[in-house]
């Protein structure tokens, strides 16, 4: 560290202390930064939770206290009692799961085909998916309404699922295509020499290899579908068939909030499944993104 020292041993000692100090300081700073980052990400959510267990009378008090004086789960009870929250949750779960599974299945097949065979039409399709992928959903919503009307699928969960699949597929294909490209061709060639057909090779050899990528794609598709608001709010209108985001939006209007406490409870309940789902599958996620997904 310091160049002009007279005694080499002393300087070595000194610099060791100095080095340790710097090292410790650096570590402490890193820990502080890490805690700050975590707080930055979670504080608003903690506030949502705190607000959700605060009784209405305290929420609307002149001097609101930071922590609720009489914490209660009353808001949650109200949420499930007077709205169709449970039903919306079920609808969202069905829709998101169906969309995710179908998108993974179809995009895995398409991505595999596109990564293994070079035909002109695939190139055309590849470019088309890119286009579809970039399309702002707001462009699609009015024409989609009329297409679904024509198919007798307005106000139907099947219709909404089809729309979700159609608009999520490009992302799925885009993510998985490069993933499949990363899997060496020799693997299936070897399997096919042993007499299996190409399709068998695909689902027995290649799919297991691509599992992390498919799970990452699945998490992604599931979470964006679970969160989706625009399509759900316009293509579905029955209170019994709507999804969480669109359902909750009916009592979060521009003019009027029924009760902040109940809304906050709804916020917690919408986010929770996603957070749990994610905690459960987290290790696949990072591996999947890293292992080639989303590259070029």
């Amino acid at each position: 560290m310091s160049k002009n020292t007279t005694s080499p041993t002393l300087s070595a000692q000194k610099s060791a202390v100095y080095y340790r100090l710097i090292r410790n300081l650096r570590r402490v700073t890193l820990y502080v930064l890490m805690i700050l980052a975590v707080l930055w990400a979670t504080l608003p959510l903690i506030w949502v939770f705190i607000s959700s267990i605060r009784p209405d009378a305290e929420t609307y008090a002149f001097h609101q206290t930071f922590f609720p004086q009489h914490p209660t789960f009353e808001n949650y009870a109200t949420l499930f009692r007077v709205t169709r929250f449970g039903l919306w949750m079920r609808n969202s779960a069905i829709l998101s799961t169906a969309t995710t599974l179908i998108v993974i299945a179809l995009s895995a097949m398409a991505a595999y085909a596109m990564s293994r065979f070079r035909y002109r039409i695939f190139e055309v399709f590849g470019r088309m998916t890119l286009l579809a992928y970039m399309m702002p959903p707001i462009i699609l919503v009015v024409p989609l309404f009329f297409i679904l009307f024509k198919l007798h699928l307005t106000n139907s969960m099947i219709g909404l699922t089809l729309v979700y699949i159609g608009t999520r597929l490009p992302v799925g294909i885009w993510m998985l295509r490069s993933y499949f490209q990363g899997i060496p061709k020799e693997l299936e060639d070897a399997a096919m020499v042993d007499g299996t057909t190409r399709f068998q090779a695909f689902y027995k050899v290649i799919l297991p290899q691509a599992m992390p990528g498919m799970i990452a794609t699945g998490i992604f598709v599931f979470s964006v579908t679970w969160q989706e608001f625009l399509f759900a709010s316009i293509l579905i209108f029955s209170a019994t068939r709507t999804t969480l985001s669109a359902g909750v939006a009916t009592f979060l209007s521009e003019d009027w909030i029924y009760s902040w406490g109940v809304l906050m409870a709804a916020g917690v309940m919408i986010s929770l499944p996603l957070v749990l789902f994610y905690i459960f599958l987290q290790r696949y996620l990072i591996a999947g993104w890293g292992g080639g997904g989303l590259k070029g």
Binding site: F237, A239, S253, D255
Partner: peptide, 10 residues
């Protein structure tokens, strides 16, 4: 009867 709700804005 299928109840459909919306906000005045929508």
């Amino acid at each position: 009867i299928d109840v459909v709700t919306g906000t005045p804005a929508t």
